[in-house]
Design a protein around this nucleic acid. Structure first.
Lengths: 241, 241
DNA sequence: ATCCAGCATTGATCCAAATCAAGGCATGAC
DNA sequence: GTCATGCCTTGATTTGGATCAATGCTGGAT
């Protein structure tokens, strides 16, 4: 544990979030902070919980799920390192609207909510980082709403693949980042519809092989799903965390 | 115009956003700021535009629309005074993802984007207000996504009415705040479906008369639409703007 | 008054996507 | 090996909501 802490301390210094912070403030903030490594499947918090910590993804990722009263559950967002996990809830002290689960072994920095709020209040650099994270997350939600309201399922799937291949830097293929059932729920459709959408896109220039999707003809694919930078593009890194 | 400015100046002092700001900073911020009264129908900006100003709703409201490439258009959010209009775009300098239009005669404060960014950077009180506005807007988007992904159209309409009546403080009725077509697009359905949903809810304790919806039996209504505070409730005023 | 434009309703029909149901194909336990 | 288990696919069917089309209502404008 001691070893781990020392190791992490080095890494924390490298987070833009803490670079540039006056040393005493940083020390104070991190005094009661903890680094937690958690296994796949861990539930970080439930929807409805009042935030106790600001969680920061140091390595790995977290999945945010929305759950209905009858128990249906859909993926709303995947948060990848490095980012804050729902600062909107922590900074307002309001109950989480989503459940957070960990899909792979991951490491988080935990800062007591009150301490984090105080630090953001007092330290412009931290406030700046929080604003950047909040703004980026807000914009992702807006894009998702436009996606849901303005497109049908085939368009959503097609644009998802194009965006994925672009993000992965491989114009001729995309590798699905998680199970198809989960992606389907992210796109607001059932796993069956997702499967059918993929196979129907076979005649629009893609080839499906497990998690790997070959994009044989990006132009033809784009023609049927009408990609739109104001929905599909991911914001550049304006505010590094 | 001079008269108007003087009048507004008094009002601006009362905005929590500016109360508590050091006088020189406030003066400096407002030096190049303008108050603009605009008629119903005005387009404040288009989606894709790069923000020139931070707009602040002083009186009235603004509607934010998402538009598809083929020209379909849906209401994503209504911003009411007092609030910031999409600080996420202004603070990151990224293009707007939505078009803003004014549904009623309204008044806005315009602050040059660069000046606003600088002021937020330098002034913790402003940063705090921006964070509060961003967080609240983020949470509204999350609620909307859960609403779209986890509910069918009848549930959305029923919960919309319940939330509306609660917000308006009249448990036995709700007055629709704008045209049904617009509300339908906000709920992610067509006007025809909205109309049918309303009439089908007739057997679940409501009576429709134009824009006025009587809620005869809130319990029965709640039984068919399963309201959920984590979707329908509106956040309390944690951070006044 | 009449006309018209904009919004809303209602009915008929169609279609996209959900649901229901049956297998398939891996992977891991034993 | 056999047997589960979890994920995915595919087919058949249903259904929720969209679309198409016609009509109604209301509030100006003239």
């Amino acid at each position: 544990m001691l070893d781990e802490m020392t190791y992490e301390d080095v890494e924390l210094e490298e987070l833009p979030l803490f670079r540039g912070l006056p040393a005493p403030r940083r020390t104070n903030l991190l005094r009661h902070a903890m680094v937690h490594g958690v296994p796949s499947g861990t539930v970080l918090f439930e929807q409805g919980d009042v935030p106790n910590f600001q969680l920061i993804v140091l390595a790995g990722s977290a999945h945010l799920f929305g759950r209905s009263t009858e128990g249906r559950e859909v993926l709303i967002e995947a948060v990848r390192a490095p980012d804050l996990i729902i600062p909107a809830a922590v900074l307002t002290g309001a109950p989480y609207l989503m459940q957070a689960r960990v899909p792979e072994p991951s490491r988080f920095l935990l800062i007591h909510a009150a301490a984090f709020r105080a630090a953001v209040e007092a330290e412009p650099l931290l406030a700046h980082a929080a604003i950047g994270s909040l703004a980026a997350q807000f914009r992702r939600m807006v894009r998702q709403i436009k996606n849901l309201k303005l497109r049908n399922s085939i368009e959503r799937v097609g644009c998802y693949l194009l965006a994925l291949s672009k993000r992965q830097g491989t114009p001729d293929r995309a590798v699905l980042p998680f199970e198809k059932t989960l992606i389907a729920s992210e796109l607001g459709i059932t796993r069956e519809s997702f499967s059918r959408a993929l196979s129907s896109l076979g005649k629009s220039g893609i080839r499906v092989d497990g998690q790997m999707i070959e994009i044989l003809d990006a132009t033809r694919l784009a023609a049927v799903c009408a990609p739109d930078p104001l929905i599909d593009e991911t914001d550049g890194e304006g505010f590094p965390i």
